[in-house]
Design a binder for these strands. Structure first.
Lengths: 192, 192
DNA sequence: TCTACAATTGACTGATTAGTCAGTTACACT
DNA sequence: AGTGTAACTGACTAATCAGTCAATTGTAGA
């Protein structure tokens, strides 16, 4: 019973992710989502009271997965540069391996359908990056610019790199791109 | 007569820009656009055969304005770094001064409603940035990474900065942000 | 087997959509 | 003034929309 519930809810979320990414929010009808998920329209509205609730749940879930992946395998005692490099490659590998989710976040991060509440809840999961950067500034490893500026440049640069990898043919060396990209952003941020 | 024509077409384009940015493509009806523009629905379809034609025209126009602004006041004989700094500040000032257009481009650059044809036409106007970067690599002023990587990092970083300026309260010093941002990206790209 | 109840269904509704088109207006040229 | 024509209008249509709800299903516990 519980398994069934989770299954249908997951199926709806996955169908919505696929279709929202392909056709946008208003471009995708609840009927299409239900059909893709293999459930009745009524079932969708049983789990998500409105279409907006659905996209907010989806956004929250995907952003959570991203922040989870970002922080993976960071060793507390390793040098600052290695931590940042690991975050960098985590971000990029997440985007490349979860193309739909990556495009979804890009399309909806500044969309009016995502409520302020959802946005704020999501933000809470990114505190650790903020802390890390502030620590890097305080210990003099990276240059003393505003932490917001540093983080924004870092994160957007990682998105640029994912787009590049997704656009380029697969024969190109992904890891070369990732390391080259890190060389650019690290040299830009590092103190010496 | 000719003036009237241009006026109505412009009014439609401007209304569409505002509403598409606020509510998205499918979230904005042609009736809403017509009303905002102060024309009848029929008039809209007189100038743009379909809603998709409208958004493609709009995208082409806005991207054209961006590429125009980007290349402004670049002096041929000035050092490479100054050229790049000027492009950087041009990009950011365009985004800050043309907020609606900036958000529109961000929202629709990877949207399915923009046709491949429009995308390719737009690309043609960005050749000069590609040429400049290649020249910078050849003369050894910037590091020898793929030109696509360099341009992608540069352009996305500029978008990150505009977002930051738009989000921050207006009391903060805009020019400080712009110069700090350039310091990061320039140090990242430059050879020494 | 029977009961109770949550999960699920899909036909349905009133509202809204992109796009049409027959008719009106405004103006240039004679 | 009269004529031709391009711009413009907005009521209209068939299709589609988000969301509802009475009816059905599946199943856990008695």
């Amino acid at each position: 019973m519980k398994e069934q519930v989770i299954d249908k809810k997951t199926a709806i979320i996955e169908a919505a992710l696929k279709l929202f990414t392909e056709r946008g929010f208003h471009g995708t009808s609840t009927a299409q989502i239900s059909k893709e998920a293999g459930v009745a329209t009524g079932t969708l509205f049983n789990y998500f009271p409105t279409k907006e609730d659905l996209i907010n749940s989806l956004y929250f879930k995907v952003k959570g997965q991203l922040s989870q992946s970002m922080g993976k395998e960071i060793e507390a005692q390793s040098p600052f540069q290695d931590k940042l490099r690991k975050i960098w490659s985590n971000l990029i590998k997440w985007g490349v391996d979860n193309q739909e989710e990556f495009l979804f976040v890009g399309q909806f991060c500044s969309s009016p359908y995502i409520t302020k509440f959802t946005r704020e809840e999501v933000m809470k999961e990114y505190v650790f990056l903020h802390d890390l950067v502030n620590q890097g500034i305080k210990t003099g490893v990276i240059r003393d610019f505003s932490a917001e500026l540093t983080i924004a440049m870092f994160c957007q640069a990682s998105r640029a790199l994912v787009n590049l990898i997704l656009d380029s043919d697969s024969s190109q060396d992904k890891n070369k791109f990732i390391e080259d990209g890190f060389q650019i952003i690290w040299k830009g941020l590092a103190k010496n």
